[in-house]
Simulated assay, not measured.
Amino acid sequence: MSGLEAVFRREHELPKRPESGVVTLRAAGLSVARRGAARPVLEGVDFEVAAGEVVALVGPNGAGKSTLLAALAGELEPSAGAVELDGRALAEWTTLDMARRRAVLPQTHTVGFPFTAREVVAMGRAPWVRTVRRADDDALIAAALAAADVEHLAARPFPALSGGERARVALARVLAQDTPTLLLDEPTAALDLGHQEAVLRLAADRAAAGAAVVVVLHDLGLAAAYADRVVVLESGEVAADGPPRQVLSTELLTRVYQHPVEVLDHPVTGAQLVLPVRR
Rank of each mutant, 00 (worst) to 15 (best):
D136N: 08
A155R: 14
W93C: 12
R156C: 06
T188E: 11
D178C: 12
A122F: 02
R173Q: 15
R133H: 13
A167C: 08
R125K: 11
W128V: 01
P180W: 05
G81V: 00
P106T: 00
G87N: 05
A160H: 09
T116C: 09
T94W: 08
L161S: 04
R125H: 13
D86S: 13
L85N: 05
V169Q: 09
S162Q: 08
A122L: 14
E151L: 06
A82G: 14
D97T: 03
V150Y: 03
D138P: 10
A146L: 07
A154S: 14
R88H: 14
Q107K: 12
G194V: 00
T94L: 08
Q107N: 08
V120Y: 04
L161W: 02
A99P: 11
R166N: 13
L90R: 09
D149T: 05
G112C: 04
E186N: 08
R168Q: 12
H109F: 15
R134I: 01
A154P: 07
D97K: 13
A172D: 10
R102N: 02
G194W: 00
R118W: 04
A144M: 07
T188D: 15
G163F: 06
R101C: 12
R130C: 09
P159A: 02
R156G: 04
E186S: 07
H109N: 13
A89Y: 00
L184N: 03
Q107A: 05
L96I: 00
V132D: 15
D86L: 15
L85C: 13
A189T: 01
V174N: 10
G87V: 00
G163Q: 10
A155G: 14
R173H: 10
M98L: 15
D185W: 03
D97L: 14
P159M: 01
T131V: 05
H152K: 08
T179D: 07
Q177T: 05
L182Y: 13
L175Q: 08
P114M: 05
E119R: 10
G112Q: 12
A155H: 13
V174R: 12
V169L: 06
T108P: 02
H109L: 11
E84G: 03
P127E: 02
R156I: 01
A172C: 12
T108Y: 11
A147R: 15
A170F: 07
T108R: 15
M123Y: 02
A172T: 03
L191C: 06
P127K: 02
R173E: 07
H109Q: 14
D136S: 11
T116H: 06
L140I: 00
F113E: 10
G87Y: 06
P180M: 11
L153P: 05
P159K: 01
D185P: 10
P127W: 01
L105E: 02
P106M: 01
V120Q: 09
A117F: 02
R168L: 15
D86F: 13
V132S: 15
A89F: 02
R168C: 12
G163A: 11
L175D: 07
A99H: 08
F158M: 03
R166F: 09
L161V: 00
F158Y: 11
D97P: 14
